Simulated assay, not measured.
Amino acid sequence: MLLIKELPTSESLKKFSGYYPGADIVAIWEFVNILRAASNLSEALDKMLAQHGLLQGRWWVLVLLLREDNLSSSPSELAEKAGVTKATMTGFIDGLEHEGLVSRLTDRKDRRKLKIKLTAAGRQKLDEVMPIYYTNVTTLMSQLSLQHRQDVVRHMQSLGANADIMKNL
């Protein structure tokens, strides 16, 4: 993911509006600020997870497996839930399996079917990381009042639900 490090200045936005007269520079400035905040949050999560030898994608796979009653799922279901390609998921699984955090299990009745299972080591890794994650999220979110957080979430859900507008060219 590309992290936005430098926000546009008011001068650069005015310059762009000269090139593209229909540009709403206030909306653009607000949008890039939202992207910057999301980048900051993602980068902070990456740094926290890296202290525990995890990458964000692999961590999400462990979390998705922990959500399952039997701690297992198919690679295609994991890819769907994570919003990544099957090839990307295979890479995550390969790395996690190499570290002993997940195992691949074949179906006894149909050897073409594969399940990915969270191992004891994978559970231990989550038991190490999740309390820190929860504490950090709680501390971060306490920077806003409960009402403000609820408003932000509602507004972000509205933007997310309409994100397909960005695909229209």
Rank of each mutant, 00 (worst) to 15 (best):
R149H: 15
I28D: 02
P131I: 10
S76G: 03
S17H: 05
V102N: 03
L49D: 01
L49A: 02
P131A: 06
S10F: 02
S39V: 06
D127G: 08
N162A: 07
K109Q: 14
E68G: 05
K115D: 10
V137H: 02
K113S: 08
D110Y: 06
D69M: 09
M141D: 12
Y19K: 06
G22I: 01
L66C: 15
H155C: 11
L13M: 10
G22N: 13
S103Q: 14
L64G: 01
R154M: 10
R108S: 15
S73H: 01
L71Q: 15
V61H: 02
N168G: 05
L65M: 02
D46A: 00
R149Q: 11
M141Q: 11
S145M: 07
E80A: 11
R36K: 15
D94W: 13
D127R: 10
A27L: 11
L35P: 03
F16H: 08
G95R: 08
V153W: 14
E43A: 13
L169H: 00
L126H: 06
R123Y: 14
A87W: 09
S74R: 02
M48L: 09
R154D: 14
K86I: 03
P8M: 07
P75A: 04
N136I: 12
I93K: 09
I28Y: 01
R104P: 04
Q124V: 13
L3A: 12
M141W: 08
A27I: 02
Q124I: 05
K15I: 04
M48Q: 13
M166A: 15
K115I: 00
I4N: 07
T135R: 13
I93P: 13
K113D: 15
S74M: 03
A87D: 14
N70M: 12
A79E: 06
Q147F: 13
K167Q: 07
T119R: 10
G122C: 02
F16D: 00
D110T: 12
R111E: 12
L159D: 07
S12W: 05
G91A: 05
D127N: 07
I93Y: 08
Y133F: 11
L55H: 05
H52N: 11
L169Q: 08
L65G: 06
H98T: 14
R154C: 10
L105A: 04
F16E: 12
E6Q: 04
M89E: 13
Q56Y: 03
I93C: 05
P21E: 00
L45W: 05
H155T: 08
S142V: 10
D110Q: 14
G122N: 11
T88C: 01
P21D: 00
I132Q: 15
D164A: 11
P21K: 04
H148P: 00
Q56V: 03
M141V: 14
E80P: 04
R112W: 09
L13E: 00
A27W: 02
N136Q: 15
G53D: 10
I25V: 05
K117D: 02
V32H: 04
A37F: 05
T135G: 02
R104K: 14
A38H: 11
T90G: 10
D110N: 14
A27T: 12
D46C: 02
L101R: 09
G53Q: 04
H155V: 12
L62C: 00
L159I: 15
I25T: 15
E77L: 07
